Computed example of a mutant assay.
Amino acid sequence: MEVKYSQKMQDAIKHLTDNPSKENTQIFKALEAAIQKVQSNPIHRDFAKYEMNEYKAVDVLSQIRAFFKIYNHEQVLFFVWINIDPKFIHTNSNGADKCPCYNEFKRQLANDEVEQYVTKKEVETSFKFHGALRRDESIFCSLDDKTSFSSASLNLSINENSQYKIEHIQESQYYSTSLPALIEEVCKKADKETIKLYCDIDLRRDNRFIESVSSTLEKNGFEIQLEDSTLKEYLRHPNKTK
Protein backbone atom coordinates (compact mmCIF):
# COMPACT_ATOMS: atom_id res chain seq x y z
CA MET A 1 0.00 0.00 0.00
CA GLU A 2 1.06 3.55 -0.74
CA VAL A 3 1.80 5.80 2.25
CA LYS A 4 0.30 9.31 2.36
CA TYR A 5 0.49 11.97 5.08
CA SER A 6 -1.95 14.56 6.43
CA GLN A 7 -0.81 18.17 6.75
CA LYS A 8 -0.33 17.68 10.50
CA MET A 9 1.85 14.66 9.81
CA GLN A 10 3.87 16.51 7.18
CA ASP A 11 4.44 19.38 9.62
CA ALA A 12 5.60 16.97 12.33
CA ILE A 13 8.05 15.24 9.98
CA LYS A 14 9.37 18.62 8.81
CA HIS A 15 9.91 19.65 12.44
CA LEU A 16 11.86 16.46 13.13
CA THR A 17 14.08 16.79 10.07
CA ASP A 18 14.59 20.58 10.31
CA ASN A 19 15.63 20.26 13.96
CA PRO A 20 17.94 17.22 13.97
CA SER A 21 18.60 16.94 17.69
CA LYS A 22 19.47 13.54 19.09
CA GLU A 23 15.88 13.08 20.30
CA ASN A 24 14.29 14.19 17.03
CA THR A 25 16.61 12.00 14.97
CA GLN A 26 15.70 9.03 17.15
CA ILE A 27 11.98 9.72 16.70
CA PHE A 28 12.33 10.15 12.93
CA LYS A 29 14.25 6.89 12.47
CA ALA A 30 11.79 5.04 14.71
CA LEU A 31 8.90 6.51 12.70
CA GLU A 32 10.39 5.25 9.43
CA ALA A 33 10.70 1.76 10.93
CA ALA A 34 7.14 1.92 12.31
CA ILE A 35 5.70 2.90 8.92
CA GLN A 36 7.52 -0.01 7.26
CA LYS A 37 6.06 -2.29 9.92
CA VAL A 38 2.55 -1.05 9.12
CA GLN A 39 3.13 -1.52 5.38
CA SER A 40 4.11 -5.15 5.93
CA ASN A 41 0.80 -5.97 7.67
CA PRO A 42 -1.62 -3.01 8.04
CA ILE A 43 -4.37 -5.07 9.68
CA HIS A 44 -2.20 -6.56 12.45
CA ARG A 45 -4.19 -6.71 15.68
CA ASP A 46 -1.53 -4.70 17.55
CA PHE A 47 -2.59 -1.60 15.59
CA ALA A 48 -6.29 -1.85 16.50
CA LYS A 49 -7.29 0.59 19.24
CA TYR A 50 -10.46 0.92 21.30
CA GLU A 51 -12.80 3.82 20.53
CA MET A 52 -10.80 4.95 17.50
CA ASN A 53 -13.44 4.27 14.85
CA GLU A 54 -11.51 3.16 11.76
CA TYR A 55 -8.21 4.62 12.94
CA LYS A 56 -5.27 2.57 14.12
CA ALA A 57 -2.01 3.41 15.90
CA VAL A 58 1.51 2.04 15.68
CA ASP A 59 4.15 2.25 18.41
CA VAL A 60 7.02 4.52 17.36
CA LEU A 61 8.75 4.76 20.73
CA SER A 62 7.49 3.96 24.21
CA GLN A 63 5.72 7.31 24.51
CA ILE A 64 5.16 8.06 20.81
CA ARG A 65 2.31 6.77 18.62
CA ALA A 66 1.54 7.41 14.95
CA PHE A 67 -2.13 7.25 13.98
CA PHE A 68 -3.32 6.11 10.56
CA LYS A 69 -6.30 4.91 8.57
CA ILE A 70 -6.48 2.27 5.86
CA TYR A 71 -8.20 3.23 2.60
CA ASN A 72 -8.59 -0.17 0.96
CA HIS A 73 -10.24 1.02 -2.26
CA GLU A 74 -7.41 3.47 -2.96
CA GLN A 75 -4.76 1.13 -1.49
CA VAL A 76 -3.51 3.95 0.73
CA LEU A 77 -2.22 4.10 4.30
CA PHE A 78 -3.00 7.62 5.46
CA PHE A 79 -0.98 8.75 8.50
CA VAL A 80 -2.79 11.62 10.22
CA TRP A 81 -1.04 12.47 13.49
CA ILE A 82 1.97 11.71 15.68
CA ASN A 83 2.18 12.87 19.30
CA ILE A 84 5.60 14.57 19.31
CA ASP A 85 4.27 17.38 21.53
CA PRO A 86 5.39 16.59 25.14
CA LYS A 87 1.91 17.56 26.37
CA PHE A 88 0.49 14.49 24.64
CA ILE A 89 2.93 11.73 25.53
CA HIS A 90 1.63 8.18 25.69
CA THR A 91 1.33 6.70 29.15
CA ASN A 92 -0.51 3.76 30.67
CA SER A 93 0.23 4.75 34.25
CA ASN A 94 -3.21 6.27 34.84
CA GLY A 95 -5.21 3.91 32.67
CA ALA A 96 -6.13 4.12 28.99
CA ASP A 97 -8.92 6.62 29.58
CA LYS A 98 -6.43 9.12 31.06
CA CYS A 99 -3.65 8.74 28.51
CA PRO A 100 -2.83 12.25 27.15
CA CYS A 101 -1.99 10.82 23.73
CA TYR A 102 -5.23 8.93 23.11
CA ASN A 103 -7.38 11.56 24.78
CA GLU A 104 -5.99 14.22 22.45
CA PHE A 105 -6.59 12.08 19.36
CA LYS A 106 -10.14 11.30 20.48
CA ARG A 107 -10.69 15.03 21.00
CA GLN A 108 -9.49 15.70 17.45
CA LEU A 109 -11.86 13.03 16.12
CA ALA A 110 -14.83 14.43 18.05
CA ASN A 111 -14.17 17.91 16.69
CA ASP A 112 -13.59 16.84 13.07
CA GLU A 113 -9.96 17.98 13.28
CA VAL A 114 -8.55 14.80 11.74
CA GLU A 115 -7.83 15.29 8.06
CA GLN A 116 -9.48 12.89 5.62
CA TYR A 117 -7.68 11.44 2.64
CA VAL A 118 -8.92 13.10 -0.52
CA THR A 119 -8.66 11.43 -3.91
CA LYS A 120 -8.26 13.43 -7.09
CA LYS A 121 -11.91 12.84 -7.93
CA GLU A 122 -13.05 14.15 -4.55
CA VAL A 123 -11.11 17.38 -5.08
CA GLU A 124 -13.59 18.19 -7.86
CA THR A 125 -16.36 18.61 -5.27
CA SER A 126 -16.40 20.89 -2.23
CA PHE A 127 -18.66 19.72 0.63
CA LYS A 128 -19.23 22.02 3.62
CA PHE A 129 -21.00 21.04 6.84
CA HIS A 130 -21.31 24.05 9.12
CA GLY A 131 -21.93 22.44 12.51
CA ALA A 132 -22.04 19.16 14.39
CA LEU A 133 -24.90 16.69 14.71
CA ARG A 134 -26.36 16.29 18.22
CA ARG A 135 -24.64 19.52 19.26
CA ASP A 136 -26.22 22.08 16.94
CA GLU A 137 -29.94 22.64 16.42
CA SER A 138 -29.48 24.01 12.90
CA ILE A 139 -26.76 23.10 10.39
CA PHE A 140 -26.20 24.58 6.94
CA CYS A 141 -24.77 22.19 4.33
CA SER A 142 -23.58 22.88 0.79
CA LEU A 143 -21.73 21.24 -2.07
CA ASP A 144 -20.15 22.64 -5.22
CA ASP A 145 -19.44 20.29 -8.12
CA LYS A 146 -16.76 21.79 -10.33
CA THR A 147 -17.16 19.15 -13.03
CA SER A 148 -20.83 19.94 -13.71
CA PHE A 149 -20.63 23.60 -12.67
CA SER A 150 -23.51 23.02 -10.29
CA SER A 151 -24.17 23.52 -6.59
CA ALA A 152 -26.70 22.54 -3.96
CA SER A 153 -27.48 23.46 -0.37
CA LEU A 154 -29.85 22.53 2.44
CA ASN A 155 -30.46 23.08 6.11
CA LEU A 156 -30.75 20.50 8.90
CA SER A 157 -33.02 21.31 11.86
CA ILE A 158 -33.34 19.10 14.94
CA ASN A 159 -36.71 18.13 16.41
CA GLU A 160 -37.76 17.01 19.89
CA ASN A 161 -36.88 13.37 19.04
CA SER A 162 -33.27 14.27 18.12
CA GLN A 163 -34.03 13.63 14.46
CA TYR A 164 -32.90 16.09 11.84
CA LYS A 165 -35.20 17.49 9.19
CA ILE A 166 -33.83 18.32 5.74
CA GLU A 167 -35.32 21.59 4.59
CA HIS A 168 -34.69 24.65 2.42
CA ILE A 169 -33.26 22.50 -0.38
CA GLN A 170 -31.74 24.52 -3.20
CA GLU A 171 -29.96 23.40 -6.37
CA SER A 172 -28.53 25.55 -9.12
CA GLN A 173 -29.97 23.27 -11.81
CA TYR A 174 -32.37 20.36 -11.70
CA TYR A 175 -31.07 16.79 -12.16
CA SER A 176 -27.43 17.85 -11.68
CA THR A 177 -24.89 15.77 -9.72
CA SER A 178 -24.56 18.28 -6.88
CA LEU A 179 -27.79 17.51 -4.97
CA PRO A 180 -27.32 13.69 -4.98
CA ALA A 181 -23.70 14.17 -3.86
CA LEU A 182 -24.80 16.55 -1.09
CA ILE A 183 -27.53 14.23 0.22
CA GLU A 184 -25.09 11.31 0.16
CA GLU A 185 -22.56 13.25 2.26
CA VAL A 186 -25.23 14.31 4.74
CA CYS A 187 -26.36 10.68 5.06
CA LYS A 188 -22.80 9.61 5.83
CA LYS A 189 -22.69 12.13 8.65
CA ALA A 190 -26.03 10.88 9.99
CA ASP A 191 -24.92 7.24 9.77
CA LYS A 192 -21.82 8.01 11.78
CA GLU A 193 -23.96 9.45 14.58
CA THR A 194 -26.83 6.91 14.12
CA ILE A 195 -29.33 9.70 13.53
CA LYS A 196 -32.64 9.52 11.64
CA LEU A 197 -33.27 12.02 8.85
CA TYR A 198 -36.62 13.11 7.47
CA CYS A 199 -37.75 15.42 4.72
CA ASP A 200 -41.08 16.88 3.63
CA ILE A 201 -41.65 17.70 -0.05
CA ASP A 202 -44.27 20.27 -0.91
CA LEU A 203 -46.13 18.76 -3.87
CA ARG A 204 -47.30 22.21 -4.94
CA ARG A 205 -43.79 23.06 -6.08
CA ASP A 206 -42.32 22.72 -9.57
CA ASN A 207 -42.56 19.14 -10.87
CA ARG A 208 -38.89 19.13 -11.80
CA PHE A 209 -37.95 20.00 -8.22
CA ILE A 210 -40.25 17.31 -6.82
CA GLU A 211 -38.87 14.62 -9.15
CA SER A 212 -35.26 15.63 -8.57
CA VAL A 213 -35.51 15.64 -4.77
CA SER A 214 -37.72 12.54 -4.55
CA SER A 215 -35.43 10.39 -6.69
CA THR A 216 -32.36 11.58 -4.76
CA LEU A 217 -33.92 10.78 -1.39
CA GLU A 218 -35.11 7.34 -2.48
CA LYS A 219 -31.68 6.43 -3.87
CA ASN A 220 -30.21 7.22 -0.46
CA GLY A 221 -32.56 5.00 1.51
CA PHE A 222 -35.38 7.41 2.37
CA GLU A 223 -38.83 5.84 2.48
CA ILE A 224 -42.24 7.47 2.13
CA GLN A 225 -44.05 7.68 5.46
CA LEU A 226 -46.98 9.86 4.46
CA GLU A 227 -48.37 11.18 1.20
CA ASP A 228 -51.41 13.25 0.35
CA SER A 229 -52.34 15.81 -2.29
CA THR A 230 -49.97 18.48 -0.95
CA LEU A 231 -47.21 16.69 0.96
CA LYS A 232 -44.85 13.74 0.67
CA GLU A 233 -43.00 12.88 3.88
CA TYR A 234 -39.77 10.81 3.78
CA LEU A 235 -37.88 9.13 6.63
CA ARG A 236 -34.41 7.55 6.60
CA HIS A 237 -33.01 5.25 9.28
CA PRO A 238 -29.22 5.18 9.90
CA ASN A 239 -27.20 3.04 7.47
CA LYS A 240 -30.25 2.64 5.22
CA THR A 241 -29.39 2.61 1.52
CA LYS A 242 -31.12 1.33 -1.58
Results as ranks from 00 to 15, higher is better:
20 P>F: 07
67 F>N: 02
77 L>H: 01
47 F>R: 00
60 V>A: 04
23 E>C: 09
25 T>H: 08
50 Y>S: 13
23 E>F: 14
81 W>Q: 03
39 Q>L: 07
65 R>A: 04
23 E>G: 13
81 W>L: 07
74 E>R: 02
76 V>C: 02
28 F>P: 09
80 V>W: 07
51 E>N: 09
15 H>Q: 15
62 S>T: 09
74 E>V: 01
49 K>P: 12
44 H>F: 12
12 A>L: 11
77 L>C: 02
46 D>N: 09
34 A>N: 08
73 H>T: 10
12 A>W: 00
62 S>I: 05
40 S>A: 15
53 N>F: 11
33 A>W: 13
16 L>P: 03
43 I>F: 02
73 H>S: 11
26 Q>R: 13
43 I>L: 10
63 Q>S: 13
21 S>C: 14
47 F>D: 02
41 N>F: 11
52 M>L: 11
31 L>H: 05
53 N>W: 04
72 N>P: 03
55 Y>R: 03
19 N>F: 09
72 N>Y: 05
48 A>I: 15
66 A>Q: 14
60 V>Q: 05
77 L>Y: 00
53 N>I: 05
74 E>C: 01
69 K>M: 12
75 Q>E: 15
80 V>A: 02
38 V>D: 06
45 R>M: 10
12 A>N: 15
12 A>K: 08
51 E>V: 10
18 D>L: 06
13 I>Q: 13
24 N>D: 09
61 L>N: 05
50 Y>V: 13
43 I>R: 05
44 H>N: 15
62 S>V: 06
78 F>V: 00
40 S>H: 08
36 Q>N: 14
60 V>L: 00
30 A>G: 11
70 I>V: 14
33 A>C: 07
67 F>V: 09
50 Y>L: 07
14 K>M: 11
78 F>P: 03
55 Y>A: 04
35 I>P: 02
17 T>S: 08
46 D>C: 06
67 F>Q: 03
81 W>N: 02
57 A>G: 03
57 A>P: 00
63 Q>P: 07
32 E>A: 06
56 K>M: 02
65 R>T: 02
50 Y>P: 09
19 N>G: 12
61 L>W: 01
44 H>C: 12
58 V>Y: 01
23 E>D: 15
12 A>R: 06
50 Y>R: 11
42 P>Q: 01
47 F>M: 00
70 I>S: 04
13 I>L: 14
57 A>W: 06
75 Q>A: 14
45 R>W: 08
62 S>F: 02
70 I>L: 12
78 F>M: 05
29 K>H: 12
14 K>I: 15
37 K>L: 05
17 T>E: 14
44 H>K: 13
18 D>M: 06
17 T>F: 10
54 E>H: 15
46 D>T: 13
16 L>C: 07
58 V>W: 00
46 D>P: 03
64 I>T: 06
41 N>A: 11
73 H>D: 13
